[in-house]
């Protein structure tokens, strides 16, 4: 069991390495992709600088906490899209019969599929996240905590993408549902949770669990709380388990295809 996990991780890391090698063949594009993503994220901070020049507290957050919120949101998103890019197009993979090559390999189909490609610009998101942490105030403890929370949040984001994309096994094309779900996760992640009330807030901690991927991590980073930490880690495990269960159940309905396919 342990050897199998080790081998699966080895293959996933090799995929990432080969993906990076491919992207680095064009040095200029590679550097531009990463740099422009950092600049793109940074441009949003300007609106917050303006808002905080008018008010000291927005939705219960100080300016530094907003920076931390952006940092966590960016690195969570970055980790998910860099390591598991294919999770966000899994509906297309299922519909066009592109799972065949993973099904004939002696590895877990879902992991092999979603780790088979990388998104270079997501490196910019990860770097931006750590720059925000640096501005917020970096220590060894909060560096570890930040990294752990970005990974657990990223795994939830990936799991949701897999769950929504796997609906394709039953309803045909589910890419628009998956895209909407993934967009909602991003859009709500960059605002202080204090501005949301009532039913919206409930949704943000359940159906669109931005509360668990971003808000709780900010609370934990501001003041460590073991209960919140346990909720984040348990939720992460729950979403991963649900994603695997739904995908594996759907796999029995997979119908392949005879499209000409190439692996780029």
């Amino acid at each position: 069991m342990l050897t199998a996990v080790k081998n699966q991780i080895k293959v996933a890391l090799l995929s990432t390495k080969y993906g990076l090698m491919r992207e680095m063949t064009n040095k200029v594009t590679f550097i531009m992709d990463v740099t422009f993503m950092i600049l793109n994220n940074a441009s949003f901070i300007i609106q917050w600088i303006i808002l905080y020049s008018l008010k000291d507290d927005i939705g219960g957050y100080t300016f530094k906490q907003v920076l931390l919120l952006w940092g966590i949101a960016a690195s969570t998103y970055g980790f998910a899209h860099f390591s598991f890019k294919k999770a966000f197009s899994i509906s297309d993979t299922i519909n066009n019969g592109k799972l065949d090559s993973y099904l004939v390999q002696p590895k877990n189909v879902l992991i092999s599929c979603i780790t088979s490609d990388i998104q270079v610009s997501a490196i910019g998101d990860i770097l931006y996240g750590y720059i925000m942490l640096l501005i917020y105030g970096i220590t060894i403890q909060n560096f570890i905590l930040f990294s752990l929370l970005s990974i657990s949040g990223g795994l939830i984001v990936v799991s949701i993408a897999v769950i929504l994309g796997s609906l394709s096994f039953w309803i045909g094309k589910s890419d628009s549902i998956a895209d909407t779900g993934n967009d909602l996760m991003v859009k709500f992640a960059t605002y202080p949770d204090g501005i949301f009330k009532g039913i919206t807030k409930i949704l943000l901690f359940t159906l669109i669990p931005v509360g668990i991927t971003t808000y709780m991590p900010v609370w934990i980073m501001t003041e460590f709380n073991i209960t919140y930490m346990s909720i984040v880690l348990a939720s992460s495990a729950f979403f991963i388990f649900t994603a695997f269960s739904i995908f594996n159940r759907g796999l029995k309905r997979y119908s392949s295809s005879n499209l000409m396919i190439s692996k780029i």
Binding site: R22, S101, L259, M260, S262, I264
Partner: peptide, 9 residues
């Protein structure tokens, strides 16, 4: 009809 190899490697 389906390539399994990485094209850039």
């Amino acid at each position: 009809q389906k390539e399994q190899l990485w094209m850039h490697l």
